[in-house]
């Protein structure tokens, strides 16, 4: 078999072919990303400047949708509820996730079982869990039977949103636990050994060594938690039947967006709500990046 000398030309075209193969593989996921994420995002930005219906543009409004939102009392209530919800749920999710991760990280017997058990709620669909929760938290439901009250937890404005908070904190704790667990296991063990020899007992080790070294975990869990919380919708919709009640307590930004789009068919207005939510999430993520961002390399 005669061996060919590799000329410059054949090397060049080989590089081109390799590049094409690369692009061919990336092409489909990239196209999918552009079509199903990027394009709708841009489209939503676009239609927020119009009065827009199912059949397209109705009227050019410029910034009027945004001006109306500035005066929209129901939107303000939704925003306040969503922010209050986020302010409670995020720290709780982080704390609970971290606690579970620390527990599961110990070399305890049955830790594999506990890891699976703690993660299990995250697997079930939120709609299914909410449906079950409606029964458990009904005024004649299981929870009241256990603690001896007769409150309709989802039907009272003082407890409806709080019940959803509790439900979500519990449901997502498993996912946050896994994120924290990964970050926890990235801390080299000899740092703990050095701390032990330096006389640090368990609480001090946790606060002074583990917690600061979990910065990457804090950042990731924090961001995921904030993004998820600001978009709370499923539970609010199911629990209030779409009305956001009682007394506006379960009206969230995304629920308001949904109602405006689907019930009042004001696509442009709903898109404007979406844009504002996007800006809010974006800003909070950047803030978190600044607070937790600078990752320490060992």
């Amino acid at each position: 078999m005669a061996t060919e000398a590799r000329t410059e030309r054949s090397i060049g075209s080989e590089r081109v072919r390799e590049a094409l193969v690369g692009y061919a593989f990336v092409f489909l996921p990239l196209a999918s990303f552009l079509i199903f994420f990027f394009y709708p995002l841009g489209y939503a930005f676009y239609i927020s400047y119009f009065d827009w219906g199912p059949l397209g543009k109705i009227e050019t409004l410029g910034l009027e949708n945004y001006r109306d939102l500035a005066d929209d009392e129901l939107f303000h209530k939704a925003l306040k509820n969503t922010l209050r919800y986020t302010a409670v749920v995020v720290p709780c999710q982080m704390a609970l996730g971290l606690t579970l991760a620390v527990v599961v990280n110990q070399a305890l017997r049955g830790r594999t079982f506990f890891r699976a058990a703690f993660y299990f709620p995250s697997l079930a669909s939120s709609a299914a869990i909410t449906a079950v929760a409606l029964y458990i938290l009904a005024s004649d439901g299981l929870l009241n039977a256990l603690i001896g009250t007769d409150k309709a937890w989802f039907a009272e404005s003082g407890t409806a949103l709080e019940s959803i908070m509790g439900l979500n904190i519990w449901t997502t704790s498993g996912t946050m636990m896994l994120f924290y667990l990964a970050a926890l296991q990235a801390i080299p063990t000899d740092v703990y050994e050095a701390a032990a020899i330096d006389g640090a007992k368990s609480w001090r080790t946790f606060w002074r060594i583990t917690f600061p070294l979990l910065k990457p975990g804090h950042f990731f869990v924090g961001v995921v938690s904030v993004i998820g919380s600001l978009q709370v919708f499923d539970q609010a919709f199911i629990v209030s039947g779409g009305g956001g009640g009682p007394n506006y307590s379960t009206m969230t930004v995304v629920l308001y967006l949904y109602n405006q789009a689907i019930n009042d068919v004001r696509f442009g207005y709903a898109a404007a709500v979406g844009v504002i939510l996007f800006a809010l999430i974006f800003t909070l993520t950047v803030v978190q990046r600044l607070v937790f961002g600078r990752m320490e390399a060992a």
């Binding site: 129901l74 404005s157 009305g243 956001g244 009640g245 009682p246 007394n247 506006y248 009206m251 109602n259 405006q260 019930n263 009042d264």
Partner: peptide, 12 residues
């Protein structure tokens, strides 16, 4: 939207 507000108010 009017009925959303109306029912929330009535609940209140």
């Amino acid at each position: 939207k009017v009925w959303t507000v109306a029912n929330n108010e009535l609940g209140a």
